[in-house]
Design a protein around this nucleic acid. Structure first.
Length: 495
DNA sequence: CGTGTTTGACCCGCGC
DNA sequence: GCGCGGGTCAAACACG
């Protein structure tokens, strides 16, 4: 836990403040409240001086988090001690010379640091651009296939709506998807009045229209409310209603996900003795993200957290990680029922659109929106899902590489697993589970952060989460010792 | 006193 | 039309 903080901060710098010089970065770090020591060449060096080629975020993150961190620290210490030792023991009349050497070295390191940062930013930008293009291609393919197979889909309302918007959708979608750092759920829902532009780590609401009613109440009401926006709203409904459900074993009453939540309701759902709690995000006014928290009826150690909506505010790193991961899954799901004629992703079972929530609540009616489930309950020994609703898109997300126990298992080497899943994604018509898992695995940054965040949450003592009760679902103010952000540790929002 | 939770009432969609 | 169930609202309440 402790070692994760520098990594989090370093990634935050590179991702969110790419244009800042070193002094600004130091200032930002200080503002975070996590590091109070003055800027030093050691701290600068720690995060960015790794000579390895930053071929991707995941690798970079791991390098920075584990061995490189310690080695960098040692190097900094050696540098400092050697120089100071020389000045004290050999020639005390040459402190200025030593200082000059240190300054020169410091300047050199700063320049190297800047170079590495810019390189990382370039790579990040390219990666995000490619990700957006991938999503665009997948969605366009999905739209085409839906036009051809409209009669065969599970959710006729959803795809009929897409057809209505058919003429204008491709252009808008293309433009939106080309935005950097395309958070898929953001992308998916952004053709609405509520347009979201996502800069790395930031969500900016371009037009936060008064569509709350439409969002929560569906197509019919939207069309009544505003005929002029009928096309747009009709097109947006199926996407916006996408939900991502995270199943994780946890004794904690809530899953800390990096966001602040306010409870606004609780209901007893049919078929489940455990009440379902309703939360809405309160990190920003007007944020429409909501989540439902409920324990699994069959196994009360499993906590099911379902997210819906799009954040309209910057997210803390943990929240970004989960948002990206879950939204990637959601987007993959939403673009799912495509064929693999040209090598694109294929979901062999179009029934994957059915509702997980229906299964969770034992209702008979399928939800009018796709729900995708991230199943964190599967152990490293390959135990099958505890429960996989027959028509739900459930896929396991083992905390490979980040849980100490799992990391010892050869199958859970992050490199192997990610590579394997990515291979399945691109080279063969994978099963739905494999495909969706690959969707997440294909974003190493998201996967790593997701796994880490969840492992932190699950592995953390209950007392560290919300003080051990459910009185404050937002973890922000209640985790005094937490290194990173204003305490909160996970979020998985999809969106 | 401010903030967040609890909980009963209400609204809406859906199936019969 | 009616009942059921999910989701939301808002007054009452608890807590620091």
């Amino acid at each position: 836990m402790e070692k994760q903080n520098p990594r989090e901060l370093s990634l935050l710098h590179s991702g969110e403040f790419p244009n800042q010089n070193s002094s600004e970065a130091d200032g930002a770090r200080d503002e975070s409240g996590d590091h109070v020591e003055p800027p030093s060449p050691i701290t600068e060096m720690d995060f960015f001086s790794k000579p390895n080629q930053p071929h991707d975020h995941h690798q970079e993150s791991k390098n920075l988090s584990s061995s490189s961190f310690d080695s960098d620290v040692n190097r900094g210490l050696n540098l400092l001690s050697s120089s100071s030792g020389v000045s004290r023991t050999t020639d005390e009349e040459k402190p200025k010379a030593g200082m000059n050497r240190l300054k020169i070295e410091l300047e050199r390191l700063h320049q190297e640091n800047r170079g590495l940062r810019s390189m990382l930013d370039l790579i990040t930008g390219s990666y995000n651009e490619l990700q957006g293009q991938l999503l665009m291609a997948v969605q366009n393919q999905a739209l085409q296939n839906q036009r051809e197979k409209k009669h065969a889909v599970m959710n006729p309302r959803t795809w009929a709506a897409l057809d209505v918007n058919e003429p204008s959708a491709p252009d808008d979608r293309t433009q939106d998807l080309s935005a950097p750092q395309a958070n898929t759920a953001e992308v998916v829902s952004k053709e609405h009045d509520r347009r979201m532009i996502q800069i790395p780590g930031k969500f900016v609401s371009v037009e936060d229209g008064p569509d709350q009613t439409c969002q929560s109440q569906g197509t019919t009401k939207c069309s009544k409310v505003d005929q002029s926006n009928n096309e747009e709203q009709v097109s947006e409904v199926p996407f916006r209603k996408a939900r991502v459900s995270v199943r994780a074993r946890s004794e904690a009453p809530l899953m800390m996900d990096g966001c602040q939540w306010r409870k606004y309701g609780q209901k007893m759902a049919k078929g489940n003795p455990c009440p379902r709690a309703y939360y809405r995000c309160i990190m920003a006014v007007g944020c429409t993200v909501r989540r439902q928290v409920q324990r699994c009826a069959e196994d009360k150690s499993i906590l099911v957290t379902t997210y819906e909506g799009n954040h309209n505010h910057p997210l803390p790193p943990a929240a970004i990680a989960m948002a990206k991961a879950t939204s990637a899954a959601a987007a993959m799901m939403l673009s799912g029922p495509t064929t693999s004629k040209d090598g694109l992703i294929h979901f062999p079972n179009s029934l994957s659109y059915a509702s997980t929530m229906a299964a969770l609540s034992s209702t008979s009616a399928a939800a009018p929106f796709p729900i995708i489930t991230l199943d964190m309950t599967q152990g490293p020994n390959g135990i099958p899902f505890f429960r996989s609703p027959p028509f739900a898109a459930t896929f396991p997300l083992p905390l490979h590489g980040y849980h100490p126990q799992m990391s010892r298992h050869p199958m859970f080497s992050p490199h192997k697993l990610s590579a394997l899943l990515a291979t399945q994604l691109w080279q063969q018509p994978a099963s739905m589970v494999e495909t969706v898992t690959a969707a997440i695995a294909s974003d190493p940054n998201s996967t790593a952060a997701l796994a880490e965040a969840i492992s932190m949450v699950i592995g953390a003592p209950t007392s560290n989460i919300n003080g051990g009760n459910n009185n404050s679902p937002n973890g922000l103010p209640t985790l005094p010792g937490s290194p990173q952000l204003p305490q909160s540790c996970t979020t998985f929002s999809a969106n």
